[in-house]
Amino acid sequence: MNVFRLVADLMHLASILILLLKIRKTRSAAGISFKSQLLYLIVFVTRYLDLFTHWVSLYNTAMKVFFIASSGYIVYQMQRRYRATWDPALDTFRIEFLLGGAAVMSLIFHTKFTFLELFWTYSIWLEAVAILPQLFQMSRTGEAETITAHYLFALGAYRGLYVVNWIYRYATEGYWEWIPFLAGMVQTVLYADFFYVYFSRVMRGKKFELP
């Protein structure tokens, strides 16, 4: 564990708490892409299949359980209690391409052809693009609530900091995995436009609006 990964994990934790807060406080999931939330649930379930086979630490297990449980809770609540508060007509990104593309990528690029390793790799590739339905929806509507922008910033910063963590780990431990590094870079690049608007507008107290 190093400071980059710790802060990254805490940002990830914060992002989910901010999202839960937004839904509870506004009693609405408006502006949130259900498809992105569904993809994150798939990401965490497929990545943490080793939850029962491989013990790392209490921290590691608790975070895995939280990420699976919270993403499942959000997907469930968006379908149930908050079903009427968001508009599926705005959430039109074709996630079949993301699900299929991540499957192809994990079949071509992986380190071992085993059940756990393939699903882990699948989750890494899928996470890189899971935010696309959300960004696509925001590009259609041209705006986002401030609390939603904070949620997305924390979520994007988490993976960006993981990239820094991997560079740091390579320098200090010789630990290197190129698949998550590449996927983390792709994800961070996808966030570039969002980060630009976030820093230039939301951080200065203005509303998140696309030019």
Binding site: D50, V56, T114, Y175, P180
Partner: peptide
Amino acid sequence: AAVAGGKDEL
């Protein structure tokens, strides 16, 4: 520890 079984990250 580069493959499943040795992963310590989230």
